[in-house]
Design a protein around this nucleic acid. Structure first.
Lengths: 229, 229
DNA sequence: TCAAAAGTGTTTTACCTACACCCATGA
DNA sequence: TCATGGGTGTAGGTAAAACACTTTTGA
């Protein structure tokens, strides 16, 4: 029966919007393309999916090959399928996003010649990007803005130990507005998902702040309960 | 330059999860397939996308051709791309959902022979579906459960004029639990997005309830403001 | 007059918001 | 000793949750 039917192959791609947070600034990961179309343009890390890999697997592989980053948990957020989004024909793309801590020297090094280089760029003043990647980026930004208000995804962006001020700065960067310090701290501590450490910041020329850790165990418990109506 | 590059065609599909609400029961729209693979199976309305149509356009066309329904606003919610989800080869699918009022005789009539028929089926006790459609349906259900708590999508499912009890029954069906009548009414009326009509229910053998309309103008104003942190 | 659903208020508790000053530290 | 960010409390308003009885209507 199957033999009577045609057999399909498909061309489609994955694009990744990877957010990082560094010295108070929200950034995303870009590559410089080394192949047509859009050779030499800046673009989101993205490439075609192989016939024998699931889209989730493809996302991990592509990110790794183009940037050197591994074991990043990405979440799918939208498929982009305008007819002319790719100059060579019909290629839809499935977009993923992730949040990533930039604690120091996570090296960015493309493993293929498809990308000349990979680098972090502040989300403000992004240059024009290849394909419809600017649109994809905007949609991802909207997504995390919303998501950060009901899930503590922010912790992915910080080093393991962080101060409340760092956490607040991050929220302010994502939401793009100032928050009240006292209210912010109260609310965060009330969630009960922070572990206070017996440790303080070091190497600052002012009063050292307490360090905190994100308590994944408590978080899991908290968010098992569905949102209330 | 372009001529040097290969030109792509792609095979991929759209599947639609259409929710309806009828006499206190949440339902979805299914078709009975008339073609291989999965001939004679029940499935979500879905088909392959043409090369020259965007995925949003394809979703509308496919729903129309398989069920006769037109001008339904659908929202994309997820792409499914496991390697073996389609027995004929690599076919990823982009899934859309919509909520729809079933006020009486919206006729379901496939325009192509691809579907033998289209019909509504209660979401409880769904039979096995073709491909990975059960998984797609589950994801859509999760999606609207969450969405109904922060956006009044429920109104799409009700007739233009409805009673507060009907509205509550709908929320209870989607969320799958009982809600407090007084709190529900207070909350709904407080949103200010309901217009009270000078009309009452007819043909019931008990005290007739007031009818309400959804006030789209006020709703638009309310939800322009972003969620507060 | 009965059955069935409509309709209605209060209290308690939790959370949000706005707002300003002293403290600890290293340079 | 000074500059810098760390750290703290309160009052008022709003919304959520819990909870039970009376009213209206048609059969």
């Amino acid at each position: 029966m199957k033999a009577l039917l045609p057999s399909f192959e498909s061309i489609f791609s994955i694009d990744c919007v990877i957010f990082g947070f560094d010295r108070g600034e929200l950034k995303i990961l870009l590559i410089e393309r080394n192949e047509e179309p859009f050779k030499d343009w800046l673009a989101l890390p993205g490439y075609l999916v192989a016939q024998d890999e699931s889209i989730d697997d493809a996302a991990s592989r592509i990110l790794h090959e183009l940037t050197g980053l591994k074991d990043i948990f990405m979440e799918q957020f939208h498929a982009f399928g305008d007819v002319n989004r790719h100059p060579q024909g019909r290629v839809i793309t499935v977009a993923y996003f992730a949040m990533l801590r930039l604690n120091g020297a996570k090296e960015l090094k493309p493993l293929t010649s498809f990308a000349k280089k990979a680098f972090w760029h502040p989300v403000n003043n992004l240059p024009a990007l290849a394909f419809d990647h600017s649109e994809i980026f905007e949609k991802a930004l909207q997504k995390i803005k919303r998501k950060i208000t009901y899930q503590p995804i922010a912790f992915e962006l910080l080093p393991e130990k962080f101060t409340l001020t760092q956490l607040q700065t991050l929220y302010e960067a994502v939401l793009n507005r100032k928050l009240d310090k006292r209210n912010f701290r109260k609310k965060m501590l009330n969630y009960g998902i922070l572990k206070e450490l017996d440790e303080k910041q070091k190497g600052v020329s002012y009063r050292a702040a307490k360090l905190y850790k994100f308590d994944k165990r408590k978080y899991a418990k908290l968010f098992k309960n569905e949102l209330s109506f």
